[in-house]
Write a protein that binds this DNA or RNA. Sequence first.
DNA 1: GCTATAATCTTGACAGTGTCAAGATAAGTT
DNA 2: AACTTATCTTGACACTGTCAAGATTATAGC
Lengths: 203, 203
Amino acid sequence: MAESNYHHGDLKNALIAAGVEILAREGIASLSLRSVARRAGVSHSAPYAHFSDKQTLIAAISTEGFRRLYSKLDTALNAHSAEPGRQLVACGQAYMRFALNERDIFKVMFSGVLEQEKEYPEFVEISQATFQLLVKVVDACQEKGILRPAPTDLLATAIWGQVHGLVSLALEKQISHTVLDLHPLDEVLLFTLNQFSQVPLTL
Amino acid sequence: MAESNYHHGDLKNALIAAGVEILAREGIASLSLRSVARRAGVSHSAPYAHFSDKQTLIAAISTEGFRRLYSKLDTALNAHSAEPGRQLVACGQAYMRFALNERDIFKVMFSGVLEQEKEYPEFVEISQATFQLLVKVVDACQEKGILRPAPTDLLATAIWGQVHGLVSLALEKQISHTVLDLHPLDEVLLFTLNQFSQVPLTL
DNA sequence: GCTATAATCTTGACAGTGTCAAGATAAGTT
DNA sequence: AACTTATCTTGACACTGTCAAGATTATAGC
């Protein structure tokens, strides 16, 4: 307990949560070590007991972001078990919605704010696990003849790249107006996924 | 001439050039209004005569980046006129090489550092012109039966998304090691483009 | 239970940043 | 030649990441 701020108890996680909230509420421009400390109610230097520098805090926030993304994808998968085609579409949609709904944490995860990602083992682990989720779906789709035979991880990389690229361009508003006026983003996604598919995928 | 720094002559473009150089030499972390001013040999506030704030300078640097990308793509196109299939592959490669060789300017262009891109007309213009380059190639490919019939701008968006996503994941080192060990990036690119193609594309 | 040690948090400082206001300098216009 | 405007400098402010020194509390060994 304690009104005292000394030995908060779980400041590390509180700082990560504060960071996630700042990203959601105020955006990436407001994410600073000091703002995170303020929101957690501790002094501006307190974070240094838990994070050696800003990059390390960002790595922890990114890792939390991947945990959330993983969870969304997992839910999408479980909603359509034994229907790999639907699983694939649902994953794509979940990825897209996550990016659009949580713009700024998605940006932190994928836009190079984190500079040496390989140095943060927890980050590497959860990001790879997320990819493996997709590999599994792709494999199931191949077995059912929905996707062509091809090296599974290569195909999974291609599909991930496809969805990720679309989402990134959409976030940066680089997708032409005429395209988005004529076709809602869901439809664009479906169109792109269907380039890979042997049988037509639907929503 | 003049040793005097007053009325430099073309400070605006000098600042943009300085920014591009800083991105190439030192990376995005070193890009500040003050570092750009230092490199151009003027005082820390001099940029404010030409850019109302940092975002406006970044918009100008991004615009310059798009000009360079446009030029690379245009060269790739002209190297294979009357062979749309090869043009498509060459464009994809040029896009990839630009991103990998000029990491940090590419990041500035596409990673949300620029926040209200729509407010910078020159930026909008060149980025749309770049997209139109791709639309043209896709259209030519469709006419030759290399790409399926489909709304051209939708197909072009899908293909751009594909290449952009691959490149982004590669830049962030998110593409799995096992994939990149087994398949060089050029091959991954070709594999993905071939998902769209009716006839096999080669390098 | 007491004490030594380690972990955690605060305070205060430093250099670097974006931005603004006031003033100096030079170019262009009449 | 004088006035006006664009351009550049100087100096200031609040904010940032980071570090050093010290205060507070938890923990481990006795």
